[in-house]
Simulated assay, not measured.
Amino acid sequence: MGDVKRVGVIGGGQLAWMMAEAAKTLGVELVVQTPSKCDPAVTIAADAIFAPVADATATAQLATQCDVITFENEFVDLEALSLLESQGICFRPGLQALRPLLNKYHQRCYLRDLGLPTPNFFELPPFPNPHPPPYFPLVLKTRRHGYDGQGTFIIKNLPELTAILERLKNVPLLVEEFIPFERELAAIAARSVNGDISIYPIVETQQEQQVCRRVFAPAEISPAVRGQINAIARTLLNHLQVVGVFGIELFLTQDGHVLVNEIAPRVHNSGHFTLDACETSQFEQHLRAVCGLSLGSPAMKAPAAVMVNLLGYEHSTSSYLEQRQQIAAIPHAQVHWYGKTESRPGRKLGHVTVLLEAEEGRQERELIAQRIESIWYGAGKSYYAAKPSVGQ
């Protein structure tokens, strides 16, 4: 591991919080830069700097307290951080790996130039000639700072497009063709300082209004599809010279082709199952990479797993202890509660992973997820009913 004893993390949410056990195992301390004393990772950090994640002055202070800096989210000021990097501060992944990805239009262009398959896309403004756009439905995305359905809109017709453009005046946008996918998939992949690559079992993700609802591991896909995805991951990580874990979201089309949806340059919600289901969690794998260690095994310890996000469905300060206890009583279930002090519709409050004793089919996995959700949301308490529709 060399001299890495302290790892700085830009961001202090649940992703940084879930690095805690891995940090203990590896004998390193975490120092976080995060806006609020109530953020989850504050409770596990050796030290914390309370500042917005885009505050590069605070990041310079963070650098004085750690040996290497990594990222829990991508909402950073890349130009300001580049000045720090030029002064010798070590970021992993390096800023050159982040540069093509933070703006979603630039990310699309980078993937296209690598020859990786993506939906058709163009920037807005302007529309390509002739206008209006040649097809509906289409997907409209803000180029920066979108997550959990924020900044993503499914547009069905020209009046909807006109209305949303009026709302988003002067906001740089990306337009993509709508893909009527057969399934959504995701890959969690890691690359070490030495260039070794480790890819976790490909998973199926189920989204509702662009928010991850469930993850089934491993995905029921053909060897050919698995091969396509692994090749995409290796190409991407090697060209970017990544050090750390990246999440890659994908569409599987009806005719068996794979398209890249989005790249997350960090640990990712679709990999939370690895905490309980894999030999090495994505969080330990990320710390191993940024500390200069060899990568651990991504193999699953159980034949299959189901992960369900516990999403807020109301404005509340409840800890939902009774629901959590009921879910924890499900055989082979493990509840991870992030300790957030406030609930609001759509906020990720925790997740639950259920390890399966056999590689059950999709229908059986659906039933397990439905059981968890019926306990969590209860009658008349669906998060999806409480959250405004995308585009509204």
Results as ranks from 00 to 15, higher is better:
Gln14Glu: 02
Ala302Asp: 09
Val28Ile: 12
Glu220Ala: 15
Val352Glu: 12
Pro133His: 04
His131Tyr: 03
Glu160Met: 01
Ala305Leu: 07
Thr205Glu: 03
Asp55Val: 10
Leu259Met: 04
Gly247Arg: 08
Val225Leu: 12
Glu284Cys: 14
Gly271His: 01
Thr253Asp: 05
Ile89Tyr: 06
Ala264Lys: 00
Asp196Asn: 13
Ala80Thr: 06
Val7His: 02
Val193Cys: 15
Val308Asn: 14
Ala163Tyr: 07
Glu176Ala: 08
Ala23Thr: 00
Asn194Phe: 14
Asp67Arg: 06
Arg112Tyr: 08
Tyr383His: 13
Thr253Leu: 11
Ala46His: 15
Pro388Glu: 11
Arg92Thr: 11
Leu250Thr: 05
Thr341Trp: 02
Val352Trp: 01
Glu360Arg: 15
Leu252Pro: 12
Val32Ala: 05
Gly94Val: 07
Leu140Val: 14
Asn73Glu: 04
Gln33Trp: 05
Pro132Gln: 11
Phe178His: 11
Arg214Met: 05
Lys37Phe: 08
Ser316Met: 09
Ser294Lys: 13
Leu295Tyr: 04
Val42Arg: 08
Ser82Val: 13
Gln65His: 15
Cys278Lys: 10
Ile232Lys: 10
Leu355Val: 12
Ile44Thr: 11
Gln323Met: 09
Gly339Leu: 04
Asp55Gly: 10
Leu30Asn: 01
Ala302Thr: 11
Ala80Gly: 15
Thr253Trp: 03
Ser281Tyr: 01
Asp47Cys: 07
Lys141Met: 01
Gly227Pro: 01
Gln241Gly: 13
Ala41Arg: 05
Ile89His: 10
Asp3His: 12
Arg191Glu: 14
Ala329Tyr: 06
Val42Ser: 07
Leu30Val: 10
Ala219Ser: 06
Ala97Asp: 03
Leu293His: 14
Thr118Ile: 09
Pro93Met: 04
Leu98Cys: 06
Gly151Lys: 05
Leu293Cys: 15
Ala385Val: 07
Asp55Pro: 12
Asp67Gln: 10
Gly391Gln: 03
His272Val: 04
Ser319Thr: 09
Ala231His: 14
Val32Gly: 02
Gln241Ile: 05
Cys90Ala: 15
Pro218Asn: 04
Pro134Gln: 12
Val354Lys: 09
Asn120Cys: 08
His351Cys: 12
Leu367Glu: 15
Ile232Asn: 07
Ile229Ala: 11
Ala46Asn: 10
Glu182Tyr: 07
Ala379Lys: 14
Glu262Thr: 03
Glu176Gly: 09
Pro93Asn: 02
Ala60Tyr: 01
Arg167Glu: 12
Lys37Gly: 03
Arg112Ile: 06
Leu101Val: 04
Pro345Asp: 12
Leu275Trp: 00
His106Ile: 01
Phe136Cys: 05
Gln326Val: 07
Gln370Pro: 04
Gly339Asn: 02
Leu158Arg: 00
Arg266Asn: 01
Ile229Phe: 00
Gln210Gly: 00
Leu138Arg: 01
Pro125Leu: 04
Leu250Asp: 11
Leu161Gln: 00
Gly256Met: 06
Thr59Glu: 04
Val4Met: 00
Trp337Asp: 09
Lys301Asn: 10
Ile179Thr: 13
